[in-house]
Design a protein around this nucleic acid. Structure first.
Lengths: 101, 101
DNA sequence: TCTGTGGTTCGAGAATCATCGAACTGTTGG
DNA sequence: CCAACAGTTCGATGATTCTCGAACCACAGA
């Protein structure tokens, strides 16, 4: 398990990738839960709790590769962060409208 | 070819469906071209001009079923309209941020 | 009415995406 | 050092989605 996973640079974030990542209800729920601040992956219970961990990990991968979240090692855990600054800079107003509800 | 195609009511439009519909570059380009007003489908050259018409029709179907556009008969043609009012009412700010560029 | 035009629908194949178990990997605590 | 924990990666299978040709359909014009 590589400690550091690849993240797209701010300038590389594509709008269509972001929209696709958020077009799934479970992934959208994850993003919404991160609005209030970073969260350990284990503490992220936005998804079905008895979902296999490989599936949950896959959700995170899609969100990470799209540039929606950061996923960084934190001890033996993973810290998830919404890339609010990057997304606001690149697509002003998008997050606010999508995560509202 | 049924003259009137089914469109979701404003209250039925789902955010995830809208995001998915706009998560494809070609479909996003179509939506962007409709910002300036309705357009006959034949006049909509946002997509590759030598794209098969069945494929183009499929793009329109995805956008229509998601509630992004209206597709209404207009003589022997089809008039495409961005559902700006409905989308703005349901997801304020979303369209503005997505279609900017 | 017959024909052309603009567009939808159907069906099939290719491509992509989702889901999950199993194996693997850093990290911490004992 | 060793065992357990948290999470990733791999591989396979199934489900969606894309793409396109062919058939079909409605309207407008000659």
């Amino acid at each position: 398990m590589p400690g550091e996973l690849p993240h797209p640079d701010r300038s590389e974030i594509q709008l269509t990738d972001v929209l696709f990542a958020l077009s799934d209800p479970e992934r959208l729920a994850i993003a919404r839960q991160l609005v209030d601040g970073p969260l350990d992956m284990a503490a992220c219970h936005a998804t079905d709790p008895d979902l296999p961990k490989s599936t949950k990990s896959h959700f995170m991968k899609v969100l990470r590769e799209a540039g929606v979240i950061r996923n960084e090692p934190n001890g033996r855990r993973r810290m998830l962060t919404l890339r609010r600054d990057d997304l606001d800079a690149r697509f002003p107003g998008l997050l606010e409208s999508v995560l509202r509800g």
